[in-house]
Amino acid sequence: MNFGTGGGILGLLILIGDIWAVINILQSNASMGAKLLWVLLVVLLPLLGLIIWFFAGPRGNKV
């Protein structure tokens, strides 16, 4: 059997992206309900949720 690390590295990158997205969602000015929905989307659909959040989600405050 061949146990490559390609899937593990991809999974780790998605996990890092999801954590980054959740932090940005929680720091945004969105309502608490909207934050909850976005976090659930990112957590329940890691790759698809991350992509949708990247293009349409709330962003954290950048000063």
Rank of each mutant, 00 (worst) to 15 (best):
V22Q: 04
V43W: 10
M32W: 14
V39P: 14
A21G: 01
G7D: 03
K35E: 13
I19N: 05
S31Y: 08
G6W: 00
K35D: 11
G11C: 02
L13N: 01
G57F: 01
N29R: 11
G7P: 01
P58T: 02
L15I: 02
L10M: 04
I25D: 12
P46Q: 12
L41M: 15
L47G: 03
S31A: 11
V39E: 13
N24C: 08
L48R: 09
L44A: 09
I52A: 11
L15R: 05
L50K: 06
W20F: 09
I19K: 04
T5R: 04
I51T: 09
V43Q: 11
N61P: 05
L50Y: 06
M1H: 06
F55W: 10
N61D: 07
G6L: 02
G33V: 13
L12I: 07
A21T: 04
I23M: 06
F3M: 06
L50P: 02
L50W: 08
R59L: 08
G57L: 02
S28R: 14
M1D: 07
L41T: 08
L47R: 04
N2L: 08
P58I: 01
G8F: 03
S31E: 09
V43I: 15
R59Y: 03
I23V: 13
V22A: 06
W38R: 13
L40T: 15
A34D: 14
L44Q: 13
F55M: 08
N29E: 13
A34M: 13
M32I: 15
N2C: 05
L41R: 15
S31T: 14
G6D: 01
K62T: 10
L44G: 07
A56R: 07
I51V: 12
L12D: 00
G57S: 04
F54H: 12
L47P: 01
D18T: 01
G7L: 00
G17N: 05
N24F: 03
L48V: 14
W38T: 10
M1F: 03
G11M: 02
F55C: 07
W38P: 10
L48P: 06
L15F: 06
L26D: 09
V22I: 14
V39G: 14
G11R: 06
N61T: 11
N24P: 05
V42H: 09
P46W: 14
A30D: 13
N29Y: 08
I52P: 03
F54C: 10
I23T: 12
G17S: 07
L15E: 02
K35Q: 12
S28T: 05
S31Q: 09
I9N: 01
L36G: 15
M32R: 14
G6E: 00
N29I: 11
I9P: 00
I51Y: 05
V39A: 15
M1R: 08
L10A: 01
A30Q: 12
G8P: 00
W20D: 05
P58Y: 07
N24Q: 13
I25E: 10
D18V: 02
G60N: 05
W38I: 12
L45G: 06
M1Q: 05
L40P: 13
P46M: 10
L45W: 12
L15P: 00
R59A: 09
V43C: 13
